[in-house]
Design a protein around this nucleic acid. Structure first.
Length: 195
DNA sequence: AAGCCAGCCAACCGCCGTTAA
DNA sequence: CTTAACGGCGGTTGGCTGGCT
């Protein structure tokens, strides 16, 4: 099954046809424009590429926010057309591609990071109990998290979260952090000015 | 320099709701 | 009421490109 890219000539024919007759009646478009394309291809090409005022290029922070917010408010909110309607010049297909290629991976990594953090808190609570049986675990005894690289044979490194007791500085354990979570965390920190 | 791989974008597919005959 | 055609949408995938080995 081959996908045939639109040529400039085809784009020109489609544009001229729509300028002449307006949008709609897509079933007649291929015939009127003299195109060997189906109605759906013509409509998609117009809506996603040829239409005036289409914005291309990277999404701004404000646009990303407008995409993520509805998704967080409503679980599995994938109404791309509604989201695109709030982003002037962006098409539903653009938003969908941006989500599928970039945002979903980043947000998954973020969720993973939060889960890892929770796991560490639970694990740490048990270890602190072993360390000091007489004291209860309160906010003032929170663990210290830090990140380090542990060299591996062959020149690569394992990224670890080091967990220490805040008072005694006693090492409580290490937890490996997966690469994507680490990368995402670094990007977030860099973007927010923390680094 | 060549091959491999991952990311991205554009195009296509299948389904669903609406409308008109 | 039924049914075929249409418009529209989300999901999927082919192919290009750039980075890496």
């Amino acid at each position: 099954m081959g996908r045939v890219a639109w040529t400039e000539e085809e784009d020109d024919l489609l544009k001229r046809r729509i300028e002449q007759y307006g949008e709609g009646k897509w079933h007649r478009v291929p015939l009127l424009a003299g195109l060997n394309r189906c109605r759906k291809s013509c409509r998609l090409r117009w809506l996603n590429y040829l239409r005036p005022n289409i914005r291309r290029g990277t999404f701004t922070i404000e646009e990303v926010d407008l995409i993520i917010k509805p998704h967080k408010l409503v679980v599995k909110c994938f109404r791309w057309s509604l989201i695109a309607g709030r982003l002037p010049g962006r098409t539903a297909n653009d938003v969908k591609n941006f989500w599928n290629c970039s945002l979903s991976k980043k947000l998954n990594a973020e969720e993973k990071f939060e889960e890892t953090k929770k796991d560490m808190m639970v694990q740490n609570a048990f270890e602190i109990d072993d360390f000091s049986t007489s004291s209860s675990i309160g906010p003032s005894r929170g663990p210290i998290y830090s990140t380090l690289l542990s060299p591996l044979p062959g020149g690569s490194s394992l990224i670890l979260n080091r967990v220490q007791d805040h008072r005694a500085g006693t090492m409580l354990g290490h937890m490996p952090m997966d690469f994507h979570t680490m990368k995402w965390t670094m990007e977030m920190a860099t973007g927010s000015g923390m680094i």
